[in-house]
Simulated assay, not measured.
Amino acid sequence: MTQPRPETPPLDNLTLSRKEGLRALAEAPKRQPPELLTVKQKADLSASALLEYEKHRSIWHANLGPIKTPQLTALHEDLWDIVESNLQDGDKAKGAVAVDAFPGLGKTTAVLNFALKYHRQVIERDGAFTAAGHERWPVCRVGLTSNIGMKEFNRSLLEYYAHPGRKSGTAALFAQRALDCVLQCETRILVIDDLHFLKWHDRNGTEVSNHFKYIANEFPVTLTFIGVELGNRGLYSEASTRGDITLAQTARRTTPLTMEPFTVANEKHRIEWRKMLLALEKRIVLCRKFPGMLADELSDYLYIRTTGHIGSLMTLINRGCQRAARTGAELLDEDLLDQVKLDAAAERARKALAKKFARGRMTTKPRSRAAKATEAKTVA
């Protein structure tokens, strides 16, 4: 057995609220899977080699994604359209994006995956430094907190760039410093996560909403919002409850995008579900795994447990693999996965969905011969 390669650089302690964290994640070498051992080969490992193998395998299973699902691919295509169309001269405002979907559908993962690809592409093409000698940071990401105001938002921008003036100043001064950072570092995408925390119709919410318009007008970036039920919360509202036209410009300039759960209502969708399970199955490193362990034996079960939500599915598989490795089961089956706890939303929907499958009203199994083509053409 070859010794597993160490994780370099370690990514378990990074934060995406700092530029160095995003760069570390974007530019880290591709993670290599542990060697797939037989039960006997694993038993023959020395105590120290076994500990190292299990550590490597645990980290691998905790980071199986993202899977290139149809939802992720479609979102990326839309994002490329918008970002590349925003290459207008600086006197023109850029169109914004709002990725709006329920929790557990992978919207943040998908947007982050796109942002990392964009970072790598720009750095490879243009270099790590600008013509003026500044560090180039193609992407900036800010996560919102509850009741955030304009000053706190601008400070978060400065914290991302580690600007020396981030500790003191007015909201307007922070905004000017943030603009300097964006211009000098040639940032082109500004990701704002957890936008649903913003209270649009109170003072802070209206203030930050107006600030987004300022950013769209003055910053040469594509604003990319991520959140839950943004339309219902007021992102696209033409007027506030006080009758002021405060959000109309944001609505006109923002393109809504979404991600949907997997459905199995027709043959095409059942084939997509199977392809995704086959791709996931290939990444699992368990000594007793076998072809069809997920896609054949557990297809219905996994859909019932997760209701087609990719976030719940990845959590279930990750935790299941951790338990299978730790207990020596070395494969995934219903008995083992029944012991794995999952999010409350998935568990609430499980019983009703299980009844439909038991009555034959639903299935994840493709009925046509076309499904066999998925064996050779699984998603990467």
Rank of each mutant, 00 (worst) to 15 (best):
K282R: 15
K19G: 05
V208Q: 00
H196K: 12
E135P: 07
V97P: 06
S156A: 15
R31N: 01
G243M: 02
G90H: 10
R305S: 07
L37C: 08
R242F: 03
P138K: 01
T2D: 13
Y214D: 08
V142T: 12
T108Y: 06
K55V: 13
L179W: 04
Q3W: 05
V285R: 15
D91M: 13
R57T: 10
S85H: 12
L353W: 07
D126W: 12
A131M: 07
K289F: 01
R270Y: 06
V111G: 05
D89F: 11
D126Q: 12
L183I: 14
Y301T: 03
W60T: 03
I310Q: 08
D202Y: 09
L277D: 00
W273Y: 12
E7T: 08
K356P: 02
A380T: 07
R120G: 02
P291C: 04
R288I: 02
V111S: 09
T109Q: 13
E375I: 08
R359A: 14
L257V: 04
Y214S: 04
V39A: 13
Y301F: 15
F262L: 06
K167M: 11
G90T: 12
F174H: 15
T263I: 08
A128M: 14
M276K: 01
K377V: 12
L286V: 01
T327W: 00
N210T: 03
G149I: 06
T206L: 13
N86C: 03
P34V: 02
L72T: 06
G21M: 05
F129R: 14
T327V: 05
A354C: 10
P34M: 06
T246P: 08
S146D: 14
K351D: 14
H269W: 00
A172I: 01
H119F: 13
F357E: 06
D244Y: 11
P6L: 11
G149T: 05
V83K: 13
R177V: 05
G104H: 11
R203I: 06
A172M: 09
A62G: 10
N86I: 10
D194N: 15
D335E: 10
E135C: 10
A131L: 14
L286M: 04
T15I: 10
P9A: 00
A101D: 06
Y301S: 01
I59H: 01
N147L: 01
D193L: 02
Q322K: 11
H269I: 03
L331V: 03
M276A: 05
A376Q: 14
A132F: 09
L336Y: 09
A251W: 13
R288D: 09
R125K: 15
N147V: 03
L336Q: 04
T38M: 00
G21S: 00
S48T: 14
E267V: 03
F102K: 10
A248F: 05
R283F: 06
E27C: 11
Y160H: 00
R367H: 05
C140G: 01
R166D: 01
V285C: 05
E7H: 10
M276F: 07
L11E: 01
A376I: 02
A49E: 15
L223H: 09
T250V: 12
R166Q: 15
